[in-house]
Nucleic acid binder design. Structure first.
Lengths: 122, 122
DNA sequence: GTGCATGCAAAGGGTTTGCACGCGC
DNA sequence: GCGCGTGCAAACCCTTTGCATGCAC
């Protein structure tokens, strides 16, 4: 059974409200705004536990800091090379099974799109 | 103009011969076997320069160490969760443009497949 | 009262940087 | 002879860990 402390609730709440994935540093800064004295170890520990419990999902874009988002439906990401923002992308490309070599068992996949977002390509 | 020193040639050669992407630690170990006294800073510096010059490509699989491979044709990767090996996958899934939100400009993409390779699924 | 999450600070691992040496042209 | 790449070691993140405190039950 999970204990629900003030810090844990705060961190989970920050990510629930966030409109984009947040990094550890952002969580720490935002968290301290509401709970001064919040320790960084607590943020690291809490995030790790939430990831392991499946409540959070790590977003690891090569070249960008690792961020975390609430695990909800399956989706992918679009990374804007100009503003660096990460957008959620709905849906999956078809034909992934066709890429899988013979004899391999495909269990999951990730797709990362790179380019310019609407604002930055204008 | 690129200078071609012994160390640089050695590192590029190791990756040219490798049948799978290599990590910095592996490059250092393999390199020292042929050139004792090879410094790790040299490996880091050389790999970074080769990546920037486009000769190498970083393979960043979440949860695995970053490895490097020679940049050749466009391809994707299959990561076996049991033996941890990374395999090259030929071809791209169709329909990536359809995933891209309206107004966004898609420039490149990455696909990472996870599962079990032929050996590990047997 | 007891136990466990917390905060602080130190340790740890991987990567980068500073600098004097010395190889290669 | 000169310059730049190199090796060593220290510096630098970012993350984890140890431990004493104190809140929550």
């Amino acid at each position: 059974m999970e204990r629900s402390t003030r810090q844990r609730t705060l961190i989970a709440g920050l990510l629930a409200r966030a409109e984009r994935p947040l990094s550890i540093a952002e969580l720490l800064a935002l968290g301290r705004a509401e709970l001064p004295g919040l320790g960084q170890a607590t943020v690291y520990r809490t995030v790790r536990e939430l990831v392991e419990s499946g409540e959070l999902h790590a977003v690891e874009i090569p070249g960008a800091a690792i961020t975390y988002e609430r695990a909800h439906h399956h989706h992918h990401h679009f990374h804007c090379r100009r503003c660096e923002r990460v957008y959620e992308v709905e849906g999956c490309p078809p034909g992934l099974t066709a890429l899988t070599p013979a004899g391999f068992r495909l269990e999951s996949h990730e797709v990362i799109l790179h380019g310019l977002c609407a604002g930055c390509s204008a």
